[in-house]
Simulated assay, not measured.
Amino acid sequence: MALGAATVLLLVATACADGGNEPASTSPAATAGVDRITMEDFAFSPANPQVRPGEKITVVNKDSAAHTVTATKGDAFDTGSIAGGESGAFTAPSKAGEYAFVCTFHSNMTGTLIVR
């Protein structure tokens, strides 16, 4: 029976490894959202990333053609041209909301950045 109690204690300790009373899966790191957008086969992945206000987003271009991640309204964000095989980054807007974006070179590449 002591082995069973030790196993339960280990499971509880592992679930609360962040030091709080909640299981580790609900810690802020587990719900941080997307911090990376990939451009591949002339599409964004994910197409509708969810991020926190002011979060830095890395953009990876796996295509051979250059792409951008550019907000369609205002100047909320714009990576500028990212050559094929290269990476770039931008900072999410500080205000919560939904921000449509497009690749300025390929208008069929679209998505929506969801800031919450």
Rank of each mutant, 00 (worst) to 15 (best):
A15I: 05
A17V: 05
A17R: 11
A17N: 02
G19Y: 08
E22F: 14
P23G: 06
P23C: 08
A24W: 13
A24I: 15
S25K: 09
A29M: 10
A30E: 09
A32L: 09
G33Y: 09
G33W: 04
G33N: 10
V34S: 15
V34Q: 12
M39Y: 09
E40T: 10
E40V: 08
F42C: 01
F42E: 04
A43M: 13
A43T: 12
A43G: 11
A43I: 07
F44H: 10
P46V: 08
A47C: 03
A47G: 08
A47V: 08
N48H: 05
P49R: 04
P49I: 07
Q50P: 02
V51D: 01
V51Y: 02
P53N: 00
P53I: 06
G54N: 05
K56Q: 12
I57G: 01
T58Q: 06
T58N: 05
N61K: 00
N61P: 03
S64H: 06
A65H: 14
A65G: 03
A65V: 13
A66E: 07
A66T: 11
A66C: 07
A66D: 05
T68H: 06
T68M: 07
V69Q: 04
V69T: 05
T70W: 02
T70P: 02
K73D: 12
K73H: 11
G74N: 10
G74V: 05
D75F: 07
